[in-house]
Simulated scan of single mutants.
Amino acid sequence: MNRPASLPAAPQPGAIANWLLFVALLVIAMVAVGGITRLTESGLSITQWQPVTGAIPPLTEADWRAEFELYRQTGEYRNVTGPAGMDLAGFQFIYFWEWFHRLLGRLIGLAFALPLAWFWVRGAIPAGYKPRLLALLALGGMQGVFGWFMVRSGLSGEMTDVSHFWLSIHLLTALFTLGGLVWTALDLRALARSGEPPARWTAMASWVGAVLFLQLLLGAWVAGLNAGHASDSWPLMQGRLVPEYDSSRGLLWAVTHDPFLIHFLHRWWAWAVVAALVVMARRVKPLDRRASIAIHSAFGTQILLGIATVLTGVALWVAVAHQLVGALLVAAFGWGAHALGRRS
């Protein structure tokens, strides 16, 4: 069957790359909004998962009071926000951030799925890229499911917060998706520019990525356990280099549950990340100077924001900026890793 004249006769890797970078920007915005949602304790304000109808917020006074009544049944309200005197206006504030976070997730899903279908039908996707794009779509769907599991973990019994394990899965899936979007976009740009084959994943990308992954995991646990409040001083905690922490249930439990120890590990493992990224950026510089600059700029800004977050007692917008730059650091790492693996 002949292709209709109105359809393109060749793939469009450049256009697809630009679309993927736009979606990557949306994911970065999603990470920032997720940080606001977490820091304002808004995550448990919506107690049901309604993927379609949930896009419409309460529209009447009766609807708002019904939602508030559902929230009043949670352990967070009974033990934290209720005794603190939360009223309907306070509930509407936290509801907005959780609703907006979920709405942005829906919009990202549409911003990915609809253009993907368009490019697919028009035959614009280069050979070999359809499975990768479908995998990115699946990651986006998993992100929504993990988000609900995270919320559900905080709605049982007398729980006053979500599981920091589910929070880390939710956040790290978003960051992994971000890295995949950036990598795939760079592959397609190289293909459009000079016909280069896809870049390879290198040994350096593996070990630097592992060092960075551990820091991101610790950061997610710090957020989930409110461990940023464990100290408002730097470099010492409680006037000591190593703070006191609960070791009564063993070191493994302390490393994964104690907010003081996790905060300590997060602030000092950061320097291992810096060292690894400096080595990587120096290797990247002759290949792509802009990627090297991006890596240096991202980790330098991130360190300063991390210290500022501690010294300001986890001020909302400083902490949100810290999480936002963390996402930008992942994108910069993906850019540098791609530069290392490019093949002529």
Rank of each mutant, 00 (worst) to 15 (best):
G141H: 10
R189G: 04
L186D: 03
L136V: 05
M159G: 08
D161M: 13
L136D: 04
F165D: 02
V162I: 14
V162D: 02
A113N: 03
S163P: 07
W118P: 00
V162P: 02
A117N: 00
S194N: 12
S163L: 12
A199P: 02
H170D: 11
V145Y: 14
S168A: 15
L171V: 14
G157D: 12
E196N: 10
G157T: 06
L191C: 07
A174F: 10
G123K: 06
P115H: 09
L155S: 03
A138E: 02
G154W: 13
M150C: 11
A185R: 02
T177F: 09
A135N: 01
W120N: 01
D187G: 03
F119E: 02
T173A: 08
D187T: 04
Q143T: 11
P115E: 13
G157P: 01
W166M: 11
V162R: 04
W183Y: 07
F112L: 11
W148S: 07
D187L: 10
R132I: 09
S168Y: 08
G179T: 05
P197Q: 12
L137S: 06
L155M: 10
T160C: 08
L107K: 04
W166H: 12
K130P: 00
P197T: 13
A124R: 15
W166E: 03
T160Y: 03
G141K: 14
L186T: 05
W120I: 01
V121A: 11
W183S: 10
A138D: 00
L186H: 06
L178P: 05
F112N: 01
A190T: 05
L191P: 05
L133R: 02
M150T: 03
L181V: 09
L110S: 02
F146N: 05
A192S: 11
S163T: 12
A124C: 13
V151S: 04
G154E: 07
G179V: 11
R132G: 00
G179D: 10
L178A: 02
